[in-house]
């Protein structure tokens, strides 16, 4: 379905969105900066905590910073590109979602591109800076495999976050009042992945490994990059989970698109 022509159209829709935002240049800059500051607060917390302790859940500051940076970059990519689906509830309430349905393109694609949010890129800069600093600071023997794993982690992480975003936004097809439930999973999910999952209790760890696959965003692939204990020793999971993020990402996409389609069908049959 997605051919070169379609991508070109989406590019133009994104361009239109960016031009709209630039119409209010001063306020755009203000929001970019404040978004940067707000997301930076999460890292400030980590930094403050590490002034009091040397290790958190067995991890050093630089290691947690790497996890934070990799997850943050992945999240901001997902947030920028697909986070616009958050507006589904608002669109349905205003009745402007229908406009998307009378056009000859995918509803999801249009929503994401029309609500593309360049200002959310503030987090990319902030998390990117932390990531670069962390890569320099972590005490690890760099091998080709480890080096390659960093971009793979980020790409797979972005896809997993994106899938969670789409799946939770689709809740709005059932109820438009529970948008914040989605936030608990998207922003909450991001917040959660910033820390090594060893600090969580067993049930939460299992939930993250097997249900909402947040552990595959940062923690498992980071074990490999950081050269830490293999997951088999802690969780009884085979070492292959460290390399499974791309597969999990593909599966997450399939599940998310199924949920979206069911939701859209429901919307079209209830129209409310």
């Amino acid at each position: 379905m997605v051919d070169v022509g379609t991508i070109a159209v989406y590019r133009r829709l994104i361009g239109a969105r960016v031009r709209s935002d630039f119409g209010f240049r001063a306020s755009f800059a203000f929001r970019l900066v404040s978004a940067c500051v707000i997301t930076g607060l999460d890292f400030a917390v980590i930094a403050v905590v590490f002034t009091k302790i040397g290790r958190l859940g067995g991890w050093r500051f630089s290691e947690v910073a790497y996890l934070y940076g990799a997850c943050g970059v992945a999240f901001s990519v997902a947030e920028t590109w697909i986070g616009g689906v958050d507006y589904l509830a608002v669109r349905i309430k205003q009745g402007t979602f229908d406009r998307v349905l009378v056009r000859p393109m995918s509803a999801l694609g249009q929503l994401a591109t029309e609500e593309f949010a360049l200002r959310r890129i503030g987090k990319l800069f902030q998390a990117g800076a932390v990531l670069v600093a962390a890569l320099v600071a972590i005490p690890v023997q760099w091998t080709t495999g480890r080096i390659l794993m960093v971009p793979v982690t980020i790409a797979a992480g972005a896809v997993i976050y994106g899938a969670v975003w789409v799946a939770t936004a689709a809740i709005s097809f059932w109820t438009v009042d529970a948008n914040e439930l989605g936030n608990a999973l998207t922003y909450g999910g991001n917040y959660l992945t910033q820390y090594p999952i060893t600090i969580y209790s067993a049930w939460l760890r299992r939930l993250l490994a097997f249900v909402v696959p947040m552990a595959f965003v940062g923690y498992f692939p980071s074990l490999y990059v950081l050269g830490r204990t293999a997951p088999s020793e802690r969780f009884g999971l085979p070492s292959v989970v460290m390399f499974s993020s791309p597969v999990v990402a593909a599966a997450a996409c399939a599940v998310a698109s199924a949920i979206w389609r069911v939701g859209l069908r429901r919307y079209r049959s209830t129209g409310s």
């Binding site: 229908d98 349905l101 009378v102 919307y267 079209r268 049959s269 209830t270 129209g271």
Partner: peptide, 11 residues
């Protein structure tokens, strides 16, 4: 409602 059905917005 009729117009929405004719456009395929709702079924």
């Amino acid at each position: 409602t009729t117009v929405k059905m004719l456009t395929g917005i709702i079924v």
